[in-house]
């Protein structure tokens, strides 16, 4: 049976990724050292609880989606989530991994509870996830992620209350799941 082992909120920025890459070469800028140090408890906690999946609610910055078709909610269901080129070229870090079986399971649970969403079987992910991920989990990333992209770019935005449904659903989804035995922890 699945279990939610915890959650965390974290900020993101393109410069965070740039700084991480620079930091790996030779020491952090003192301005960023505080940020790096502050995340160590999160990193240690993740290493301790060893989640089987990480469900990530984030936003894309017109790096995968465009306004030609822009979803309010989009779930990424794929084996891999390649890094988006945001204009500066991709960073030299590994790809995020996904677990389609888990993704489809969550999709079924969410839609059955009337949380209708767009499902993306190809989704490039930008600094909304890639910028902070290396600070809290060492690459290469073995933990599969399930990204849920939320419109934060163009009004009208979904209300925070709307997001209570997927969080409630992910709790409900686990015991009811017909499926994967590997769903021990989230």
């Amino acid at each position: 049976m699945g279990q939610i082992v915890g959650g965390f909120g974290i900020s993101h920025s393109p410069s965070m990724g740039t700084e991480f890459d620079r930091g790996m070469a030779g020491g952090f800028d003192p301005r960023w050292q505080l940020w790096f140090d502050g995340l160590q408890p999160v990193k240690a906690w993740l290493a301790k609880v060893r989640p089987d999946h990480i469900v990530i609610i984030y936003n894309d910055h017109l790096n995968h989606f465009t306004f030609d078709a822009y979803p309010t909610f989009a779930l990424g269901v794929a084996e891999h989530f390649p890094q988006a080129d945001e204009g500066w070229g991709p960073r030299k870090i590994p790809e995020l991994r996904g677990d389609p079986a888990f993704g489809w399971h969550m999709c079924e649970q969410l839609v059955s509870q009337e949380f209708d969403l767009t499902v993306c079987q190809q989704m490039r992910v930008d600094h909304g996830i890639y910028s902070w991920m290396p600070y809290v989990v060492d690459a290469p990333w073995s933990i599969p992620v399930l990204p849920l992209a939320v419109n934060m770019l163009r009004f009208p935005l979904p209300s925070p209350r709307r997001l209570q449904i997927p969080s409630t659903s992910s709790r409900g989804a686990l015991p009811r799941g017909t499926s994967p035995q590997h769903l021990r922890r989230y």
């Binding site: 465009t66 306004f67 988006a84 945001e86 204009g87 009004f155």
Partner: peptide
């Protein structure tokens, strides 16, 4: 600036141009 639907319509061509620059 709050980015609204009408702004999105006004900026449609500009945004399409700008986002084309994601391709090297």
């Amino acid at each position: 600036y709050l980015y609204t639907g009408p702004m999105s319509s006004a900026g449609e061509r500009l945004n399409r141009f700008a986002l084309s620059l994601k391709v090297p």
